[in-house]
Simulated assay, not measured.
Amino acid sequence: MEAFDVARNVISVATGLISIGTMIYVWLTSQSKVNEADIRDLHKKVSEQDGRLQGFENALKNMPDKDTVHDLDMKVSELNGQIRVVSESMKAVERTAQRIENFLLDQAKK
């Protein structure tokens, strides 16, 4: 019976070790599944951010550079100067039209 008791003790210890090993394996794999879900979420967020970054890069490519903006500023300044000249000419035309109107009104009174 002594061999039977030793075998039973060995089996009992082996069963305990297997149980502890199983618990450790379950604990490690459960953490792995949580980490896998976290990694999947992070991958999804990185993909979304990559899409947004591509949008910003495309928008930036289509924006004018400093030379183009400077040229546009110069052309607007030139147009403002031309508008001032036209405005002065229009004042002269307005004065002439006023004189003609006054002349015609004086002629109508006579």
Rank of each mutant, 00 (worst) to 15 (best):
H43A: 11
H43F: 12
H43T: 14
K44E: 01
K44Y: 06
K44G: 10
K45C: 02
V46K: 12
V46M: 10
S47R: 12
S47H: 05
E48W: 06
E48C: 05
E48T: 04
E48N: 05
Q49V: 05
Q49P: 02
Q49F: 04
Q49Y: 06
Q49A: 12
D50G: 10
D50K: 12
G51V: 05
G51D: 11
G51T: 05
R52H: 08
R52T: 14
R52V: 15
L53A: 13
L53N: 10
L53E: 04
Q54G: 13
Q54N: 10
Q54H: 14
G55P: 05
F56G: 05
F56I: 15
F56E: 11
F56N: 12
E57V: 09
E57P: 06
E57L: 09
E57G: 03
E57W: 00
N58D: 11
N58K: 13
N58T: 14
N58I: 08
N58Q: 12
N58C: 08
A59R: 10
A59E: 12
A59M: 08
L60C: 03
L60G: 01
L60N: 13
L60F: 00
L60H: 07
K61I: 00
K61N: 10
K61P: 08
N62K: 12
M63P: 06
M63K: 14
M63T: 14
M63N: 08
P64H: 09
P64R: 08
D65K: 10
D65F: 03
D65L: 13
K66S: 08
D67T: 15
D67E: 09
D67H: 07
D67Y: 04
T68C: 10
T68G: 12
T68W: 10
V69L: 10
V69R: 04
H70I: 11
H70P: 05
H70S: 14
H70E: 15
D71V: 11
D71W: 13
D71N: 06
L72S: 13
D73H: 03
D73C: 03
D73Y: 01
M74I: 01
M74A: 06
M74D: 04
M74N: 07
K75V: 04
K75E: 03
V76D: 02
V76G: 00
S77V: 02
S77M: 04
S77T: 05
E78V: 02
E78P: 00
L79P: 03
L79N: 02
N80M: 00
N80R: 00
N80V: 00
G81N: 00
G81A: 04
Q82A: 09
Q82D: 03
Q82H: 01
I83G: 04
I83D: 02
I83L: 09
I83M: 02
I83K: 02
I83R: 01
R84K: 06
V85A: 13
V85D: 13
V85R: 10
V86Q: 05
S87I: 01
S87C: 03
S87V: 04
S87D: 07
E88Q: 10
E88R: 06
S89D: 12
S89H: 11
S89C: 07
S89Y: 07
S89P: 00
M90I: 12
M90W: 07
M90Q: 09
M90N: 11
M90G: 07
A92N: 07
V93A: 13
V93T: 05
E94S: 15
E94G: 13
R95H: 15
R95V: 09
R95Q: 15
T96G: 14
T96N: 14
A97K: 03
A97F: 06
A97G: 10
A97C: 14
Q98E: 15
Q98W: 13
Q98F: 11
